[in-house]
Nucleic acid binder design. Structure first.
Lengths: 224, 224
DNA sequence: GTCTATACTTGGATAGAC
DNA sequence: GTCTATCCAAGTATAGAC
């Protein structure tokens, strides 16, 4: 990790200092979006949380919106990476719901999805921001579609409901549940829904309409 | 409708003038929330849309937040009244989904739900606003729960999934779909979901696990 | 690269004329 | 009840010192 050619002091001088500042600003922007929403995410509020000067927002990101988009990028990248790793071994609908429930609880408690929600809701206040945000949401829908495809495949269920539309609904539900939960401070009804979804998924498996046909899912080998 | 004792001029003087101004401000607040979001809903922006003076916001509503809450009240009341009338004759899950699809399309095009979404998302920027908004969302969940109860009742489905949790999910999905649709400018995937829901509801009916038992739903009489 | 200082704009809110 | 005028706080953004 240590870069060659830099002095012994790690981030107090040298080329890495700029990147470090950008990073604390991005993290502070994320925290500010969670705690005070889009309307409260001013350059002053974010810089205050980051413990640095307000002018640095404009030096490093050009504008407040520029920083907020960088924050959205960071959350998206980190979460999508985590999602991918989590669903790697998922093979059935019931397993998927189980994993999704765990991830949702994480996201809810950490407020990751709130960053997306605030940016979407705040997009209408700034011309051109909507398209930027939309472009950053699209990977979430693509990921959901891929996972749904890998679990439902060309099974009976997957044929009746197109995975793209189902993914759209899943992402919408995810955003809406986050919205309601952070408003009401009660995450119980949202988590309970995942339990019921788990039962439904198990039912789908029993009925044999959700598992992949054997031809597209050969017996897994031991070696990775 | 005409009030006794007032002059021939309708709203230019007299007691009704205040109410009329309040109403145009509320309507302008609704439009501003739809078009510019919570972050863009300033007293000046709203008053400009209403065609009146910015100071009137504070005279009539005390603060900008006060006006926005009045706007949320107005939308909630008008929509819930419309919902109630629409589901009055609904007796089966399939009918309910049909009615819900029509209502959703209305809400989407008119932006009614966007007002809720913006207020929820904006609530975190102002101390104390969250509780006020939560109190105004709760009737939506109660309504959804009542309708779900009236259609599923103590049937098989209604017993497996508690109506309160299902209502929570339905409202969340409603909010999330609105959020995504107004971002992406494409309502097709959201509307398609209602079509699939209709098929599912029809399946539920065929299986006989969604209709009310005859004892709780006697044959309707002609007189209301 | 980071800070201070500052110009400029917008927004919430109030006082007082009409 | 409505308007004009105004105050003050907060926000964006830039210039220039360090």
């Amino acid at each position: 990790m240590a870069k060659p050619g830099t002095s012994s002091r790690l981030v107090t001088e040298g080329a890495g200092r700029s990147a470090a500042t950008k990073q604390v600003l991005v993290e502070a922007a994320i925290e500010t979006l969670k705690a005070e929403g889009f309307a409260g995410a001013s350059a002053r509020a974010i810089a205050g949380r980051a413990g640095c000067n307000q002018a640095l927002v404009f030096y490093h990101f050009g504008s407040v919106v520029g920083l907020l988009l960088a924050a959205l990028d960071a959350v998206s990248a980190s979460r999508l990476e985590h999602y991918s790793a989590s669903v790697e071994d998922v093979r059935s609908p019931a397993e998927l719901v189980e994993v999704a429930a765990a991830i949702f609880r994480e996201d809810l408690d950490a407020g990751h999805v709130t960053v997306l929600v605030e940016m979407i809701a705040g997009a209408s206040s700034t011309p051109g921001l909507g398209a930027e945000v939309a472009a950053r949401i699209s990977p979430w829908k693509q990921f959901a579609k891929q996972v749904i495809d890998s679990v439902l495949g060309d099974s009976a269920l997957g044929t009746v409901i197109p995975s793209g539309e189902l993914a759209h609904g899943v992402v919408a539900l995810y955003l809406g549940l986050d919205l309601l939960t952070h408003l009401g401070e009660d995450r119980a009804p949202a988590l309970a829904l995942f339990d019921h979804a788990k039962q439904l998924a198990a039912l789908v498996e029993v009925l044999g309409i959700g598992r992949l046909p054997a031809t597209t899912a050969p017996a897994p080998k031991e070696a990775s």
